[in-house]
Simulated scan of single mutants.
Amino acid sequence: MNKKIVIAGLLALFAIAGAGCASKQTAAPTQETQTPAAPHSTSEQTAPDPSAQPTENNGAAQTPTSPSTEHTKTKTETEKSGDHQTQQITVYYTDTQENGLKEEKKEITYPSELEKYQKAFEALQKSGNSTLIPLWSDKISVHKIKLDNGALTFDISLPDEARLGAGGEELAIDALKKTMFQFNEIKTLDLLVDGQSLESLMGHVDLDHPMSR
């Protein structure tokens, strides 16, 4: 009887010991479930990546400044190019026999309206073509040009070597009128010699003050 009690007690002890081992083995999977914390910690480490995006966005926000800079440069270049204008005009000469007026297209470049008329007059003085004879000598110089409400005034010097006969004088005045009156803003044209209003430019043809279209 005592042996049975002892054996039963030993079996009970083994049972308790076995239960303790079983509880230890079942507790192990609970610890392993914490391993996904590594992905969680990884996600926490990757979280700063979105924080880098504002820096990139800030950089992107700064890039639109380049178009405005290019626009400013274009505007500046436009203003510089506008300092001088180019225009094609018709200029009038004659031939070697003074048989009427002969027209020729010329391109002039000028910085202002008054310079435009100066360049047009200079074009009358040189043809660049041996068959076209200028009626206005390059010995003639312009003292002053004035424009007042469509009234254009030329004050010139006229040396003796620049004077023409009756036929040439009439053609010269017509060439000047046709060249200047092609500008729509010009309503009248007055021609002075050394500041004086002469009755005749070269002594052959009456000179109106002013000449009109």
Rank of each mutant, 00 (worst) to 15 (best):
A162F: 05
T188M: 14
V91L: 02
Q88V: 05
P50I: 12
Q62W: 11
H71A: 03
A61Q: 15
E70Y: 01
K116H: 08
A17H: 06
K116V: 08
I140G: 05
H204F: 13
H40L: 15
L198D: 01
N58E: 15
E115T: 07
L189G: 01
P36I: 10
L176Y: 04
L176E: 10
T94R: 05
D160I: 00
K80N: 14
A123T: 02
K75M: 07
A166I: 00
A22V: 08
A37C: 10
W136N: 08
M211W: 02
K102E: 12
G203K: 04
S51H: 13
K146G: 00
Y93K: 09
L189C: 03
N184Q: 10
A123N: 10
Q53T: 09
E56Y: 11
T33I: 13
N58D: 15
E103Y: 04
E161Y: 02
G59L: 14
A151Q: 06
Q118C: 05
T33G: 12
A8L: 15
T72S: 03
K126I: 02
T72D: 02
A28I: 07
H71M: 03
G167I: 10
I156F: 03
H71S: 03
E122P: 01
V205F: 00
S81C: 08
L192Y: 01
A162L: 07
K119C: 06
K106F: 01
A52S: 13
E122L: 12
A19L: 15
T63I: 11
A123L: 07
E199A: 00
D206R: 05
S68H: 02
W136V: 05
D174C: 09
K146V: 04
A22R: 13
F183I: 03
D208N: 02
G150P: 10
S200H: 00
S141H: 07
S81K: 13
L147C: 03
T74N: 02
Q34G: 10
A28M: 12
T63G: 05
V91R: 03
S66M: 15
T69F: 05
I186L: 08
E122R: 09
T69D: 06
T76D: 13
K3M: 14
L152H: 01
E115I: 07
P67A: 06
Q97S: 08
F14H: 05
L191A: 06
L191R: 06
K24T: 00
D194P: 09
S200E: 11
G18Q: 11
Y93A: 06
A27H: 12
K73I: 01
L10T: 01
Q31T: 01
A28P: 00
P48H: 10
Y93T: 01
T109M: 14
I108L: 04
L207D: 03
D194H: 07
A15G: 10
N99C: 07
P67M: 04
I186G: 04
S68E: 11
E113T: 00
Y117W: 13
I140C: 10
C21S: 08
C21Q: 11
T188E: 14
G167F: 05
F154W: 03
G167V: 11
L152Y: 01
Y110D: 10
L176W: 05
N129M: 08
Q97E: 14
I133K: 15
S212E: 15
I145R: 13
I108D: 04
N149T: 05
T33Y: 14
S127M: 06
S127V: 02
L176R: 11
L132Y: 06
L201E: 02
K73W: 01
G20Q: 13
Q196F: 06
